[in-house]
């Protein structure tokens, strides 16, 4: 078992300013990191002896009004500890590296986040819509989403 504080300290000593913030005053303590360091940090979290976060429980897209973000709920099957990692990106350029190579389960979760939030996961092997039809326009879980009046030229009755 390792505490979130220790995770934060180890990460900060290794990755420096790519680790932004630690929040302990919450139900699930989380660490905010910058998106450009995500891939190597994720790899480190999975492979380092002290962490062994081999199980990505949940990956959620988020719309924080001004920015978009992704929340990773990580867990270690071997060591039984958890951590939450958060990444934020701007709405104009919502590109986050895909962690599909590290945790395969991220494949569908990332497709879902792309589908519903429009977050683009770079180097994702198959970034298509997953829940909505392929010709759907817009990303419905965004807070500023307007329900379209027409779908493929057909008026949608409400």
């Amino acid at each position: 078992m390792i505490t979130p504080q220790e995770v934060f300290d180890i990460l900060q000593s290794k990755f420096g300013e790519k680790i932004l913030e630690l929040q302990l005053q919450t139900h699930n303590p989380f660490i905010k990191i910058s998106s450009d360091g995500l891939l190597e940090i994720a790899q480190f979290l999975r492979d380092d002896e002290r962490f062994q976060f081999d199980y990505l429980s949940c990956l959620s897209g988020m719309d924080y009004e001004k920015t978009l973000g992704v929340v990773y709920h990580l867990f270690s099957m071997k060591k039984k500890h958890k951590i939450v990692i958060k990444v934020e990106v701007s709405k104009e350029n919502p590109i986050i590296p895909s962690v599909e190579k590290i945790w395969k389960t991220a494949n569908w979760h990332e497709r879902e986040a792309y589908d519903l939030f429009g977050i683009i996961f770079s180097e994702h092997p198959d970034l298509r819509r997953i829940l909505l039809p392929y010709d759907w326009e817009g990303h419905p879980l965004r807070k500023d989403y307007q329900v379209p009046e027409y779908y493929n030229g057909m008026k949608v009755p409400y």
Binding site: T26, H27, N28, S57, C58, M62, H73
Partner: peptide, 19 residues
């Protein structure tokens, strides 16, 4: 606030992340 809670549903881990 926010929380992620996972439970054992018949099919496996059913979790809710509520903000």
């Amino acid at each position: 606030a926010e929380i992620y809670v996972r439970t054992e549903a018949p099919r496996g881990e059913l979790g809710f992340y509520i903000v």
